[in-house]
Write a protein that binds this DNA or RNA. Structure first.
Lengths: 187, 187
DNA sequence: GTCTATATTTGGATAGAC
DNA sequence: GTCTATCCAAATATAGAC
């Protein structure tokens, strides 16, 4: 229970941490109250819609942050540099594999039906933007898309395995390999 | 509530379905009761340890089933054939991407701390056995291990993305590509 | 905006009859 | 082995004072 008051962004950040780490169902209001230092009633003042509204606002915030990472891909300049830069940002975002992905957590913890639209949209945004960047580097459209899909799957899987095996090395290795694999010549 | 009595194996099967689909925290006893047709009290008769014991027994059962898949890899014969056969078995096991992986679901839904040992052991078994088979096909040990890790990550990620995007095509494509990628010549 | 108190529901678990 | 009934704790959510 921090004594310094938290800004709205910081509160959302803390709540997001809980959902990322424990999933939807296992994240209770008590946990959120403890993580934010706010009482239950205060939480309902900020989020009248309760837990669902919290999740949606966290989705929005995380969506913005991911948008900044994807924006790195859309900047002008060498595609390889852009992909490398965005992978660095991804590594920071997931704390080198120590933090879960909100999408994965929601998919596998009971939020899959409640937030189906948000989830599908988020995955699609990742794949579409990454695909466009690879295509932009001269890779044919069909291959670019397959590689983008593959990259997103591997990122998700790496976070799951990293957590299951308590070893983030796999995640970090993946990030270092991805730029080359996404842009290589052959099929 | 099915009127025909279920065998122990069928009960465990149904319970496993629930945990795979909704994760640990979101799978309530009411859900399990409905899925199995057993009352709460009956469930405690079969599983005195409650929910945790159910999970552990499901782990054991799923572990055996996965063991059969991994056994396909350890049989004598052409490594490529064995890998292809086991991938077919994997596809059946996950119903072509429609069913989640119990490991992934547990990792991301609050079971990560409770069942840490079981989870780590299961991931390790997958990777070790797959790695041995690839090595057996003439691939150097270090590369074989990296590829095995990569394959498990991709399988996990594919199931997450398939569920998030409601599209199992990615999962099935991955399975068809894996045998070639695991055994190819270069790096 | 935050707090105390509380309503209401659900979930996990047990007792005892049959 | 299953059922009804029940206990207890925890979870979501709200009311109203400050």
């Amino acid at each position: 229970m921090p004594r310094t008051k938290l800004s709205r962004e910081e509160v959302l950040e803390r709540i997001g941490e809980e959902f990322r780490c424990h999933g939807y169902a296992a994240t209770s209001l008590s946990r959120i109250a403890e993580a934010t230092g706010l009482g239950r009633a205060s939480l309902y003042h900020h989020f009248p819609g309760g837990k669902d509204e919290m999740v949606r606002q966290v989705f929005r915030k995380v969506g913005e942050e991911v948008g900044e990472i994807l924006a790195l891909l859309e900047e002008p300049g060498d595609p390889r540099d852009r992909i490398t830069a965005s992978m660095k940002a991804v590594e920071r975002f997931y704390a080198g594999g120590a933090k879960n992905c909100l999408l994965g957590a929601m998919v596998l913890s009971g939020g899959s039906e409640l937030f189906a639209d948000e989830l599908a949209a988020a995955f699609t945004a990742w794949i579409d933007t990454l695909s466009a960047t690879i295509r932009n580097a001269g890779v044919p459209a069909g291959i670019a898309r397959r590689r983008a899909e593959d990259a997103v799957m591997r990122l998700q899987g790496a976070l799951v395995v990293a957590r299951g095996m308590k070893d983030t090395g796999l995640f970090r290795r993946l990030l270092s390999e991805l730029p080359n694999q996404l842009l290589e010549e052959s099929s």
